[in-house]
């Protein structure tokens, strides 16, 4: 059936002038630069499902993992710029990875059309750690420079840069121990092998509720109701140093403006549907749709800030 529908729509396209107002006249391919099963994949599929109904067109989701997301993005950006290939991405391969790896694209190659919201990273300590708020955590680290170990998702990754950004501003020092993903970090944190957990919220949330961890500082400006004890960066007077994990839609820059507009408004509507809100809430993320202009501004400030951090900690660019 699908094949028949696809063939019919391809024929329909051939019969029409491939321009503006009739977009979309055939199925759209959404590339997700991550393996199936993770947060980006889950959200991307849900958003695509919702957008299908709005655009009245089929959206085929393709997973292209590898290279920390850069491989899939490169594929989106080398596709024909007709709007029928879009990428649903998280921020790391566009604002973080380019500082430590040579990537085959620059900011000039893509337009961000919208973003659906964010999930904060959080720093947690053991119940007997001598601090009970974000401020006290920073003070405790200040008293013992270089003593505490902070587990994170990989050197040069978004979590490490987010923490560096905060600690550089505060002028304090920790030692970074990289793990493979937040789950691995959580396990080593709960086993007492590292002092501070640094990573996304879901793996640690239940342990915080069960009293096995004190989550003290978020990397977002605002606090998060899932972790009431944790301070937002606003509370410690560093609202400008926010670095979060967010998700959005990109297309090649040369996609016609009218098509970009159509996609933007459709996906903004899709992001606000109850289904998308629910799945984001389930995974501890905050639903906060933003339009193209706001998302591009966010990318610019984040890129510049992380570039500065990466340089300050001596992350050199490595030829891939």
């Amino acid at each position: 059936m699908k094949t028949v529908a696809r063939t019919l729509s391809v024929l329909a396209v051939a019969a029409l002038p491939a321009w503006g107002a009739d977009f979309p006249a055939k199925p759209i391919t959404m590339i997700i630069p991550a393996a199936p099963g993770g947060g980006t994949d889950t959200f991307g599929r849900k958003v695509a499902e919702a957008a299908e109904k709005i655009l009245k067109q089929q959206i085929t989701v393709e997973n292209r993992g590898g290279g920390s997301g850069t491989v899939g993005i490169a594929q989106v950006l080398t596709a024909k710029p007709d709007g029928y290939t879009v990428g649903f991405v998280w921020n790391s391969p566009i604002t973080t990875i380019p500082h430590s790896l040579e990537v085959p694209y620059t900011k000039a190659d893509y337009s961000a059309l919208m973003s659906i919201g964010y999930s904060s990273y959080v720093m947690c300590v053991a119940p007997d750690f001598p601090a009970n708020s974000g401020k006290e955590l920073i003070e405790a680290i200040r008293k013992n420079p270089g003593k505490y170990t902070l587990g994170n998702d990989g050197l040069g990754g978004t979590m490490q840069l987010a923490a560096e950004r905060i600690f550089a501003k505060a002028g304090v020092k920790v030692r970074y121990v990289p793990f493979k993903g937040a789950g691995d970090t959580a396990k080593n944190f709960l086993g007492g092998h590292i002092d501070i957990y640094g990573g996304s919220i879901p793996p640690i949330q239940q342990h915080a509720r069960a009293g096995k961890a004190k989550c003290l500082l978020l990397t977002s400006a605002e606090p998060n109701e899932a972790l009431p004890q944790a301070s937002g960066l606003k509370d410690v007077g560093m609202a400008d140093e926010e670095t979060v994990l967010w998700w959005g839609l990109i297309v090649p820059r040369r996609v016609p403006a009218a098509v970009q507009k159509t996609l933007e408004s459709a996906f903004l509507k899709a992001a606000a549907t109850p289904e998308v809100k629910e799945i984001m809430a389930n995974k501890g993320a905050t639903n906060k749709p933003m339009d193209a202009a706001a998302t591009n501004r966010l990318i610019d400030t984040e890129y510049a800030a992380l570039e500065k951090v990466a340089k300050s900690i001596g992350l050199e660019k490595k030829a891939k």
Partner: peptide
């Protein structure tokens, strides 16, 4: 603990989370 030990169980975790169930001590 809500922590997948091997990649296969990571997929199970993802399936549970999609239904709003976060495995863990609770």
């Amino acid at each position: 603990l809500g922590i997948p030990a091997i990649p296969s169980t990571a997929i199970l975790l993802s399936a549970l989370q999609n239904h709003g169930i976060q495995p863990g001590p609770l």
